[in-house]
């Protein structure tokens, strides 16, 4: 008999794998984005179940909130739908599925017999915002500041790349 948390784990796992499959099977890119958002919410649910509240919230804000909106914006900006969807040959699809399936089979076979060692009485407070903040601003202060420089560079780069070039003809521009 499954307990509540076990049942929740298997239910969330099933939903996340199902919607991850639908991301790559959907013909319309907009549908792919919607399914990906559902997958991200399920992964956030896993974070909450592991008592990593900070990561769960950041996952919803950053992935489901910011990144997926960016994807949806670009898809609607380029006006993509299932008519513009490039078709893959069926042979390539089968070959890709076989390659991925073999990889999955290999890892499942390896870890099925492996006994992983972990703490018997894990501290369940480590994922709270207070404890993560202490680690982040004590041990990882320098990488944290470097990330802000990375963001600045990414912002400047994205604007520079997507900016309309003055030298190109007006007809070449969307």
């Amino acid at each position: 008999m499954l307990s509540i948390s076990q049942g929740l784990f298997y239910f969330l796992s099933f939903i996340s794998v199902l919607f991850a499959l639908m991301v790559i099977l959907a013909k319309n890119p907009v549908h792919s984005v919607i399914y990906l958002i559902v997958t991200f919410f399920c992964i956030s649910g896993h974070y909450f179940m592991l008592n990593a509240q900070f990561l769960g919230i950041v996952n919803i804000i950053v992935y489901a909130g910011a990144i997926m909106v960016l994807f949806l914006f670009v898809i609607m900006f380029l006006n993509l739908n299932h008519e513009t969807e490039p078709k893959t040959p069926i042979l390539a699809k089968i070959a890709g599925a076989i390659c991925g399936g073999m990889l999955l089979l290999l890892v499942v076979a390896i870890f099925n017999d492996t006994q992983l060692i972990y703490a018997q009485n894990p501290n369940n407070q480590i994922g709270l915002i207070k404890n993560l903040g202490l680690v982040l601003f004590k041990d990882y202060l320098f990488p944290f500041e470097i990330v802000s420089i990375l963001f600045l560079a990414a912002m400047v780069g994205a604007v520079l790349l997507a900016k309309k070039d003055d030298k190109t003809k007006q007809s070449d521009i969307i």
Partner: peptide, 22 residues
């Protein structure tokens, strides 16, 4: 197993889809 299942789905998506956004 769960993580690797999702990872494999990602790999299959990269291998089989031709839409750059997907």
């Amino acid at each position: 197993f769960l993580s690797f299942a999702i990872f494999t789905i990602g790999i299959i998506g990269v291998l089989t889809r031709r839409n750059a956004i997907v």
